[in-house]
């Protein structure tokens, strides 16, 4: 089943930050990892990913550095303290949203 793009858009930053919290990643790896962990639901386009990553770097949420791995130069992104804080608040926001939607739909078994 395809998920509506509008729904994915709002949570992309949260997902990226969550992945970067585990370990530093470069762009291509990030997309593959997102695809794998979401079992194919999130098929993030490169044209969407990079502007988000660069915006997060300017915000000070992540930092980037170049590293040569297996003869290829790759630009890695790693999360910074400010990014951790942003992730926490985004997670809280998401949980609130999810609970509210579940409640309206009458699903999720939350009482």
């Amino acid at each position: 089943m395809q998920v509506n793009k509008q729904m994915i858009k709002g949570s992309t930053e949260t997902l990226i930050l969550t992945l970067l919290k585990e370990r530093p990643l470069y762009g291509y790896e990030l997309i593959k990892e997102l695809h794998r962990q979401s079992e194919g639901v999130f098929n993030l386009k490169e044209g969407t990913l990079y502007p988000i990553l660069h915006a997060m770097e300017i915000e000070g949420w992540v930092e980037s550095y170049w590293m040569e791995v297996e003869g290829r130069k790759r630009k890695y992104y790693s999360i910074r303290d400010k990014g951790m804080e942003a992730l926490e608040s985004k997670k809280a926001e998401w949980n609130l949203f999810r609970r509210a939607v579940d409640r309206v739909l009458g699903e999720g078994g939350l009482t």
């Binding site: 386009k45 490169e46 044209g47 969407t48 990079y50 502007p51 660069h54 915006a55 300017i58």
Partner: peptide
């Protein structure tokens, strides 16, 4: 195809940088 329209990507990069 995967990278997307270069003009669109370029414009969003310009807004950032």
């Amino acid at each position: 195809e995967q990278m997307g329209d270069p003009a669109v990507v370029g414009k969003s990069m310009h807004r950032l940088h």
